[in-house]
Design a protein around this nucleic acid. Structure first.
Length: 437
RNA sequence: GCGAAUGUGGUGAAGAGGCUAACACAACCGGCUGUGAACCGGUCAUUCGUGGGUUCGAGCCCCAUCAUUCGCCCCA
């Protein structure tokens, strides 16, 4: 009986894993350039963490979490996102007291949401994100967006659509919320069931509604911009000015509200639109939060951050053919002519590995012909071939699989011979690379 | 939660009720018994997701079920 992977999960193997390594390397290094340090937090958290941060009214908490009771009847949840965990770890370890503020954290790893899988959406998916926690300052908000934008550019994306909006500070946000609730209450009987529910639990989310009919009503709704107090407006203007200074293109989208309850002031999303101008959803998104740290027991610290969906990034890079051909490349494949030399081949392979060469050794009694095929499949630079003669005299043959040049040498010279051959290859490759430029 | 499409060897797949389930790639063996990408020959699905039904006869039609994929909602 064949066992399938759990619905909504997927295996990432071989070439694809190499591609993810590359993507993560770029994300990591850009974050480090901006002064961020890696945080690794547990997959499991007490469920309360997410109901208090992401919010009881969010879809994530209401229906998408992997929540269960552990053996001591504590309700635990596999993280649906990282921000809450990062903030929790800062509070738990009192890092706000021992580290310089703001704290700059980046993370990468799996998150879990029980949703219907589709293109670019999995139940277990990897997020890469950053959080900058300490104080409210438009420069930080701008830095975070530039950081995210830079990552996408370094990954090879050309046309990124950055949507931004402001929800305003506490005061503005609640004034607007009140206004919009009054407005939609008048039209709600004509709107979809989801909106009826949203009106009760989080009226802002109605702005996000994709239903055509509702959109007409949404378009006539009061605008956030007219409810911003002076402070919030200045703040947002400063952020957009800083983006302009860096020549980061963006669109202000007043319907952008985000489904996580902790955001205030700045919210943003990175999109990539394909030729049909369709998006598989945001590549990444984030925003500013003012109450989250205090809500989780820390001080009155503001934060700002974003997360990318690694699978989405990968998927679009693949579609747009922006992923270089990554394949296994072995240094040396060791083959033996008959079974009698397996010990000798084994010994040589191990010596090569001790010297840091990526080595694969054949232990089957396949023909040399098929061993050469295998070596080619592993994309090896060299084949080491040993037979009865070589084992007896403690020598070996080494053949360059590309040029077909072969030489023999003494076993005691293994390292010097191999080192020299690879030096030559390195020089050649460098020359080729330079010629290409 | 709602809607749609698709399930045939290791892979890509053909197959519109009738002999033994095409073809290609991969794999393995041999031609070449100590040297690879070419070439030639051979081997490789008693079975079409699973269960039931219709029929003289089912991969093909019907029902159920499972799985996958895509879309909506929402999200990264």
């Amino acid at each position: 009986m064949e066992i399938n992977p759990v619905k909504g999960t997927h295996d990432v193997v071989e070439e694809e894993a190499l591609a993810y390594q590359e993507i993560e390397k770029i994300m990591r290094s850009v974050a480090e350039v901006y002064g961020f340090n890696e945080y690794r937090t547990p997959v499991l958290e007490y469920s309360e963490l997410f109901s208090r941060s992401v919010g009881e009214s969010s879809d994530i908490v209401r229906k998408e979490m992997y929540t269960f009771l552990d053996k001591a009847n504590r309700s635990v949840t596999m993280r649906p996102e990282w921000t809450a965990s990062i903030v929790r770890s800062i509070v738990s370890n009192k890092l706000y007291a021992t580290k310089d503020l703001p704290i700059r954290a980046y993370y990468m790893g799996p998150s879990f949401r029980y949703e219907r899988p589709q293109a670019g959406r999995y139940r277990q998916f990897n997020q890469f994100g950053v959080e900058l926690i300490g104080e409210k300052n438009p420069y930080y908000d701008a830095e975070i967006i530039v950081l995210g934008y830079s990552i996408l550019r370094f990954l090879g994306f050309q046309d990124i659509t950055l949507k931004i909006n402001t929800l305003g500070d506490d005061v503005s946000k609640s004034a607007y919320q009140k206004a919009i609730k009054t407005y939609f209450a008048k039209h709600i009987d004509k709107m979809c069931d989801d909106c009826k529910e949203r009106l009760q639990i989080n009226p802002l989310r109605i702005l996000d509604c994709k239903v055509e009919e509702d959109q007409k009503i949404v378009r006539k709704a009061p605008k956030m911009s007219s409810y911003l107090n002076e402070e919030s407006r200045d703040y947002f203007n400063k952020v957009t000015t800083l983006l302009d200074n860096m020549e980061i293109p963006f669109e202000i989208d007043e319907t952008l509200v985000r489904g996580l309850d902790y955001y205030s002031d700045l919210v943003f999303e990175f999109h990539y639109l394909d030729k049909q101008k369709k998006s598989i959803g945001a590549l990444g998104a984030g925003g500013h939060y003012d109450k989250l740290v205090s809500e989780l027991g820390g001080g009155p610290l503001h934060g700002v951050g974003f997360a990318f969906g690694e699978e989405r990034v990968y998927e679009i890079l693949r579609q747009e053919k922006l992923i270089p051909d990554l394949q296994e490349r072995s240094d040396i494949y060791v083959m033996s002519i008959s079974k009698n030399e397996l010990d000798y081949a084994y010994d040589i392979a191990m010596r090569l590995r001790f010297n840091g060469y990526r080595t694969i050794c054949n232990y089957s009694d396949k023909t040399l012909k098929s061993q050469f095929k295998t070596a080619t499949k592993h994309n090896a630079y060299f084949a080491v071939i040993v037979g009865e003669e070589e084992a007896k005299n403690e020598t070996f043959n080494i053949k360059n699989l590309a040029t077909q040049e072969q030489q023999s040498a003494k076993l005691k010279d293994l390292q010097t011979v191999v080192d020299k051959l690879f030096e030559e290859i390195e020089i050649e490759e460098r020359e080729v690379a330079e010629a290409e430029e």
